[in-house]
C-alpha cells in the first residue's frame, strides 16, 4: 500500500460519503452540501490524475456557481423535508437496491477488459491551461462555438422562464 493508494482510498471514501449524502439525506440543503463535498473531492482526484485545469474548473463551475444556484433555489422555495413516495411498490429501499445493483453490475462487466491499462507517458503539458486552450481553439474550435451557443440559449431560456408572465 503506497501513500498514493491510501490517499486515493481516503478521497474515494469521502466522495462516496458525499454521494450517499445526496441520495439519502432528507433535507435538500444537506443534500446540496454533500454534493459540494463530493465535487471538491472529485476536484482533488482530478489533481491526482494530473488534470489541474479541470480540477480548478470543477471547483469554480460546479462548487462555486452551480451549487450556489441550487442553494439559492432551495432557499427561495423554502424546501423542507420531503415525504416518502405514495405508492408502496416505489418504496425507496426496494427500487434503490435493485436498480443500483443492476447499474453497478453492468459497469463491473465493463471494467474487467480494461483493467490491464497503465498510466500513459503523457506530455508534460498534460492538463495545463495552455494545452487545453490550444486544443479548444484548434481541434475543437467548432464544438467550442456550439457549446457557447448552447450557453447563450441557456441564458435566454432561463430569462424567459423567470419572467412573471410568459
Amino acid at each position: 500500500m503506497t501513500t498514493n493508494q491510501i490517499a486515493f482510498l481516503a478521497l474515494a471514501l469521502l466522495a462516496l460519503i458525499g454521494g450517499g449524502g445526496v441520495v439519502f439525506s432528507q433535507r435538500p440543503v444537506r443534500a446540496a452540501m454533500c454534493l459540494v463535498l463530493n465535487f471538491l473531492v472529485l476536484a482533488a482526484l482530478y489533481f491526482m490524475l494530473g488534470a489541474q485545469m479541470l480540477g480548478i474548473s470543477q471547483i469554480m463551475v460546479y462548487a462555486g456557481a452551480i451549487m450556489v444556484l441550487f442553494l439559492f433555489i432551495v432557499m427561495m422555495l423554502r424546501m423542507d423535508r420531503e415525504e416518502p413516495h405514495k405508492v408502496w411498490w416505489t418504496s425507496a429501499p426496494v427500487i434503490g437496491t435493485v436498480f443500483g445493483a443492476l447499474v453497478l453490475f453492468i459497469f463491473a462487466l465493463g471494467i474487467r477488459p480494461v483493467a490491464e491499462m497503465k498510466p500513459g507517458a503523457v506530455d508534460p503539458k498534460f492538463g495545463t491551461p495552455q494545452a487545453i486552450g490550444m486544443e479548444m481553439m484548434t481541434t475543437y474550435a467548432w464544438p467550442f462555438e456550439v457549446a457557447s451557443m448552447l450557453l447563450l440559449v441557456g441564458i435566454v431560456a432561463s430569462i424567459i422562464l423567470a419572467k412573471r408572465r410568459i
Binding site: M33, I59, V68, L71, F72, M75, P129
Partner: peptide
C-alpha cells in the same frame, strides 16, 4: 500553473458560509 484561477475558485466558495 493556475494561480489566478485558484483565487477565483476559492473566492467563489466564500458564498457558502454566509448562505448556509
Amino acid at each position: 500553473d493556475i494561480g489566478i484561477l485558484w483565487v477565483l475558485a476559492i473566492s467563489s466558495l466564500g458564498a457558502y458560509g454566509i448562505v448556509l
